[in-house]
Amino acid sequence: MFGVQGRTIASVTLRATMGRKRALLFALPPLILIVVTLLLKLAHPSDPSWPSQILGVFGFSVVLPLTALIIGTSVLGAEVDDGSIVQLLATPVPRSVVIASKYVVATVLTMIFVALPELLAGLIATGGATRLAIGLFVGALAGSAMYNAIFVMLSVLTTRAIAFGLLYVLIWEGLLGNLVAGAKLLSVGHYSLGIANAIAHDSNLNAGLSAGTAIGMGAVVTAAALVVAARGLASFSLKGDAI
């Protein structure tokens, strides 16, 4: 997809990301989602309202952003922190290829650790390949792609990417996104719900944006974040002597 350079970076990134102890954390939020779904299915097998509540609200405002945050800040941020990124940047690889390769790895991992569990939980909760299950799966796939662009960008711009990422997820999306109408327009969580609802047509999802707005805004935000990330990486500087 990106030639030999992109494939090489992706392969090393994948090994580095999955080799860290932090990788165990990737599986925790989706595991909780599936366990909760199983328990609720046993307790309320025929109640139609909880699947969209749990898989939509909990899945899209907690599991998806937090897992994407852990993965998105791992693929590049860890190397920036420990300085091993210099080995990669002291080569003629275009910085856009570095960002694109890291982003693809983060997105695919998030899709595996969030979108697939969402689909599985949706199948369990609704008893089959319903519109809700498929909608949540597609929404989670799109959310994985959008969140990771932002988190990869944050890990280029700041060494406190996790802190800023948490602030965005908890304060902007969690608080303001639900209280202030305009904040939804800059909320990846709402873009994901909007895309999910375009298929699911379920009012319990509380989707605040139309599919068109969600896809359009999501594409713009994703592209902008990746461009900013590539530019930021091109200006990556090493600290000089301790003075």
Binding site: D82, G83, Q87, A90, T91, P92, P94
Partner: peptide, 21 residues
């Protein structure tokens, strides 16, 4: 701002961090 320069330069930075795996 010139990645092409690394066709001419080889760099061994002070910080000893590599992909140890």
């Amino acid at each position: 701002h010139n990645p092409e320069i690394y066709r001419t330069i080889g760099l061994v930075p002070e910080r000893d961090s590599v992909y140890a795996f």
